[in-house]
Each structure stands twice: as C-alpha cells, then as structure tokens.
C-alpha cells in the first residue's frame, strides 16, 4: 500500500507545487492521475520513488517512509517509467540495458538471466536482445525503456505520459500490457496523463489535480463525467461523455456516467432490451 499523507512540496525557487495531498493506493490498483501541465502530477509522482522528498507530510511505500530511504532502495518497489526513453537508454545492447537496472538494484547473478528473458518475451523484444537500443525505432525504444524498469518486477509501476504521440495500435498495445501487468501480475499501475480518451477507455480509477491540490478521486466514469470536476481540473470531457451528457438532457432514462464506447454499447443494449417488453 502507498500512503500519502498531507504532502506539501515547495521547489527551491519558492514555487509550492503540492499543497497538502493525501492519497491511498492499495496493492494491485490501476489508476490515473490527471490534470493540466503544472498541476503537480509529475511532482507528486516523483515522491513515489523518492526522487523528491516531502517538504511537509509523508509518503509511505509498504510502510517505508521515503525520507529514510534512497531512490535506489525505493526503486525495488516502485518502477518509474519516464516519458522520454531517450533520457536513459545508453547501453550497447538491449540485454545490457536490462542488466544495468538489475545489477544496480541488487539482483543476484543467478536471477538476472531468467528475469531478462522473461521480460523480453513479455514485451516482444526477444529479437532485439543483442541490438543497440539506438538502432531501434521510437516505439521499440519506448518498449525497451519499459522493459528496463519492468525487469525488476516492481510492485508499483508509475508511467509518466505514456501515450504522447502514439497511434491507435501503439496505444492498444500499451493498454493491453498495462492490463496484463495489473490483472495477471497483480502490480499496481499508476498512469500520469492528460489523455482523457485513453484514461476513459482503460483505467478504472481517476484522481484529478489542479494547482497542487486533489480535485477528485474516484471511479473514472464518475469523475470524468462530472462537469464541475472537469472544469476545475482543466480537462475536457471524453467525447463519448459529451455525447451522453447531451442525450441525458434530452431523455433522462439515458445514463449520464458513460465514458467509453464499451459502456455506451452496454447502455444501448440495456435500454433497447428493456424497451422490448
């Protein structure tokens, strides 16, 4: 469990990025943290693996107070996947990239080979094992970056804006991977994003932030359909929600808390079958 209690953070420049944030994340949860650029999402995320230490308040990762542990120690539990893979790929081969993480995090020589093989398989990167990461395409490099963090099997995975600039196939692949990590491998997945459509499609819980404060925290189809919350969080309604808001106004039998196509189809089914009496 991750417990964030009354977290305040003030940057050296004097800017207060977090103003008393409290959140609980249980093992195996899947959630999104949303808000406009500058709302404090990344600042918050960096507290999860100790890159930033609280100015006030505390952050507990499975009972470990982040102020008492180094980033390296916390990284065994919390894997942070940065947005830009080119920020940290540097090794001669994909295999060596994964080895770097595993060695640094203290895995033994005997454990490492199997962890590498499994991760490469899971992410469809086996054929690139001995290739230099620099010779791969953008999407492939992103998967390598992901692999370099996932190989350590962290219990909590944080992804910073993982969908920027990606087309449909890439997003679906990512969503499938995250779903597998969450459902099958029982890892907590925390996605920081301002991509309303992606979150609406795939992520069950949403926390929205604005100006260093939490605006809302709840099921995605309640949070992202609430006009007030959307406004205060500087976001936009998912397109399907916009549609159903209009439909609901015309006909109150039509439900309003619909955020994606799947839910829309379900609603449609229910309504039309209930009419067939």
């Amino acid at each position: 469990m991750i417990e964030i209690e009354n977290l305040w953070y003030v940057y050296e420049s004097g800017f207060t990025a977090l103003k008393g944030v409290s959140i609980r994340i249980s093992n195996g949860e899947y959630l999104a943290i949303m808000g406009k650029n500058g709302a404090g999402k990344t600042t918050l995320a960096k507290h999860l693996n100790g890159l930033l230490k609280p100015t006030r308040g505390y952050v507990l990762i499975d009972g470990m107070d982040t102020r008492d542990y180094s980033v390296a120690q916390l990284s065994r539990k919390v894997g942070y996947v940065f947005q830009n893979p080119d920020r940290f790929l540097f090794a001669e081969s994909v295999e060596k990239e994964l080895m770097f993480t595993l060695k640094n995090l203290g895995f033994s020589e005997s454990e490492i080979p199997s962890l590498i093989t499994r991760t490469l398989n899971d992410l469809n990167l086996s054929q690139f094992r001995n290739r230099s990461p620099f010779s791969l395409s953008g999407g492939e490099r992103r998967r390598v970056a992901l692999a370099a963090i996932l190989c350590a099997n962290p219990d909590y995975i944080v992804l910073d804006e993982p969908t920027v600039g990606q087309d449909f196939y890439e997003k679906e692949r990512l969503a499938a991977l995250l779903e597998r990590l969450n459902k099958k491998d029982r890892r907590a997945v925390i996605v920081i994003s301002h991509d309303v459509e992606f979150v609406a499609d795939h992520i069950p819980r949403t926390i929205t932030m604005s100006d260093g404060l939490i605006v809302s925290d709840g099921p995605t189809n309640k949070v992202l359909t609430n006009q007030l919350i959307i406004e205060r969080s500087n976001l936009k309604l998912p397109q399907i929600s916009e549609l159903f808001t209009l439909l609901h106004e015309k006909n109150s039998h039509i439900p309003r808390d619909i955020v994606n196509i799947e839910q829309a189809l379900e609603a449609f089914n229910k309504l039309t079958s209930s009419r067939k009496r």
Binding site: D167, F168, K171, L265
Partner: peptide
C-alpha cells in the same frame, strides 16, 4: 487502418455493424 478514430464516429460505426 490504425488511426485514432474520433470516438463518436467509431461508436456509430460499431452500432451500424451490430
């Protein structure tokens, strides 16, 4: 093709098909 089709268009397409 694999482009991020706008959601309402996609919804209509599926409703039409089903």
């Amino acid at each position: 093709i694999g482009i991020n089709v706008p959601k309402i268009a996609s919804l209509f397409n599926i409703l039409n098909k089903r």
